[in-house]
């Protein structure tokens, strides 16, 4: 890396090292690698630009307000569609998944970093990583065939006994509910939250941990006093990355969510849809305006996940200690 500063000043001042710099291959190779990096930035920009370009005609043809309309009739001769219900479903189901997954992921991370026997720790970490290797569509299949019938009982139980809490309320408990979709999302984002938290916990200053133990702290007190305060920002950003994943998750929820267009917090009733699920379900029969409308909704999803991810990366990059923590 130190040599690249030399290369930059090269060309003008003919010094004794110039023979090394003047090699004919160096320029092209340097430009090719810089070009590849710039291309990557270009792809990100192009994603935004081309989604906007294709979304505009559909948004202009829309006869309802894109932001507040609840229905999605983009293929009609008078297209009427709005993002409100979909964005609501995306945000609520993702947060629900986050609430379910984060405590378990923190537990898993602590287990691997501070509780499991050293020799087993990396193997057990690999087991959790395998959860991330299972494709989304397999979770979807597992969800509709196994989890939906399986959750009928517990859902009914929640509705019967905790129905006075608004989110568990509703008259009709269904299998394909927001809750079951969020459960599957939670399973899918658990590995990433656990992996990053684990890395952060492993970076906690060893001296502080040993000092706490030497002063007579129990293992939990040591973790509470030295590991958790150190790891908090890392866990927060891990959770945000998980949130971004959950929002963009498509196929599993497309199979499970009932694809209704409602705004309701009753997670056991037939509510639940998301931007991504709507794209997957609606693409097959979409006409030109319909495709434009789906692209417009995808643009909204892109912007939301971009903001969530940027915030998460910003939190992680503020701490130098996390420099080696990557996802």
């Amino acid at each position: 890396m130190a040599t690249s500063t030399q290369t930059r000043e090269g060309g003008s001042a003919p010094q004794s090292r110039s023979a090394f710099r003047r090699s004919r291959g160096d320029g092209p190779f340097r430009y090719a690698s810089t070009g590849a990096g710039v291309l990557l930035l270009g792809i990100m920009a192009a994603i935004a630009v081309f989604l906007i370009v294709r979304a505009i005609p559909a948004l202009q043809a829309n006869t309802a307000s894109f932001l507040s309309e609840l229905t999605w009739n983009a293929n009609a001769s008078e297209p009427k569609f709005g993002i409100a219900a979909l964005a609501f479903g995306t945000v609520v189901s993702s947060f629900l998944a986050l609430i379910i997954a984060t405590p378990i992921a923190i537990g898993v991370a602590l287990f691997i970093s501070h509780y499991a026997p050293r020799r087993l720790a990396s193997a057990l970490g690999y087991v959790i990583d395998l959860l991330a290797a299972v494709p989304s569509v397999v979770y979807g299949l597992w969800g509709i065939i196994f989890l939906v019938p399986f959750m009928r009982g517990p859902s009914q139980f929640l509705n019967d006994y905790l129905g006075w809490i608004p989110i568990f309320g509703g008259d009709q408990v269904v299998g394909r509910s927001m809750l079951v979709g969020s459960l599957v999302l939670a399973i899918m984002i658990l590995p990433i939250i656990a992996a990053i938290s684990r890395e952060v916990f492993l970076q906690a200053p060893k001296l502080q941990e040993e000092a706490a133990l030497a002063l007579g702290a129990t293992r939990w007190e040591m973790i509470r006093m030295s590991v958790l305060p150190f790891g908090r920002p890392g866990v927060i950003s891990a959770a945000m990355l998980g949130l971004g994943r959950a929002m963009g998750e498509t196929i599993a929820v497309a199979l499970i969510f009932p694809a209704t267009f409602t705004i309701s917090f009753e997670i056991l009733s037939a509510n639940g849809n998301s931007i991504a699920a709507n794209i997957a379900n609606g693409f097959g029969e979409a006409n030109d305006i319909g495709r434009g409308a789906l692209i417009a909704s995808g643009l909204v999803l892109f912007i939301i996940t971009l903001l969530v991810n940027m915030a998460a990366r910003w939190v992680i990059s503020r701490r130098k200690e996390y420099a080696r923590v990557a996802a």
Partner: peptide, 19 residues
């Protein structure tokens, strides 16, 4: 942006190629 790109939802990548 490499970091941000890891968070691009797969469906958005599909929509981009579609568009």
């Amino acid at each position: 942006f490499v970091d941000i790109m890891t968070g691009v939802p797969s469906v958005v990548a599909g929509l981009f190629v579609l568009a």
